[in-house]
Amino acid sequence: MVAVPEPIKRVFDTFPLTTYSPIQSTTPGNELSIEQNKYYFEGERSDASFCLGVHNVIKLDSNDKKSRFIPSDPVSLGSSLILCYKNNLKLPTTDSKELQHSSGNSMLKLSFHAAPDRQLPIFLVDDEKSNRTVKTASAIKDAFVNQDVNKNEDFNVEQLILSNWIDTKLFDLWILCLLNEEIQHIDKLFNLDSELMKDPVPSYLLIRNLYHEIPNWQAFNTRNPNLFNHDPSEYAKNAIASTTIATKHLSSYYDLQLKELENDLPLWIEFLKTDVLKNSKAENILLFKLVGFVSSTKLQNS
C-alpha cells in the first residue's frame, strides 16, 4: 500500500469529508400551509386518497353548529358534489380536521397556475402504492361521464345530450359572465392574495393576469375566435378603464347566450320536477352539475 504524501494528506485533512443527511423537499412550514389549505371530506378512510384542487372555498353556516365548506366556483362545486356522491362522502365541515371524521380525501385551495393547463379544478389521485396521477379539468369531465354513447351504461342518449349541454353551454356562460360582469368579490372567488390586493399595482397585475387566462379555459377563445378578433384600441381602453375586458362582440354574445338561457331554464325546471325523481345515477350526476352552476350564481349575488 502506498502511503499518501504528507502535503496532500495535509490538504485533505483541512477539508474533512463528511456526509450530510438529505435535505427534505418540504419544510414543516410548507407542510403546515398545505395542510391549512386542505379541507377534508367526511367519510370512511381508505388507503387510496384523492385531492380536488379548487380556487377557493366558501363557508356555509347551517343550523347544526357545524359549518360546511364548498368550492367557490360552479365547475368545482359540481365536481365536488359528484365526487361525494360517487364515493359516499360528505362535504367538509369545521370539525372534519379531527381524525375520526376525516376520510383522507380532501379539497385543496390552489392557484390556477398549479394546473398544467392553468385551469381548475384538477384532480390528484394517490393510489395504494402512493403513485400520483393528475387529472386536468377536461379529464375529470370525461371520468364522470363516459362520452361513448354505446358503452355508457349509466346514461342514456338523452341524459348524455343534456349533460353535454351543461358542460358546454353553461360553462361558456360562466366564462362569459366572468368576462362581462364586474364582479365584486373577485379576490374571494379566485383566492387572490389579500395582502397583495391592498396595493393598487400588484392587485391590478394579479387581476390582469387572471383575466388574461380566463378566455383560455375550456378553449373558449379557440372556439370563438370571432369574439376576440377585435379592435386593439378598444381592448386597451377597456383594460385601463375597468377590470372587465368586455368588447362589443363579447357583450353582444353574452346577451345572446343569456337570452337562450332564459328560454331553456324553465324547460330545465320542468324537466327536473317531472323526470328526475326516479333517482338513477345519471340523473343525480346531472342534477349535481346543474346545482353547481345555479347555486354558485346565487352565492355570488348574495
Partner: peptide
C-alpha cells in the same frame, strides 16, 4: 313537448360544439 325542446337545444349545442 318541453322535454323535446330541451333535447333540441342540447342537440344544437352538440352540433355547434
Amino acid at each position: 313537448t318541453h322535454k323535446q325542446q330541451l333535447i333540441n337545444s342540447g342537440l344544437l349545442a352538440h352540433l355547434q360544439h
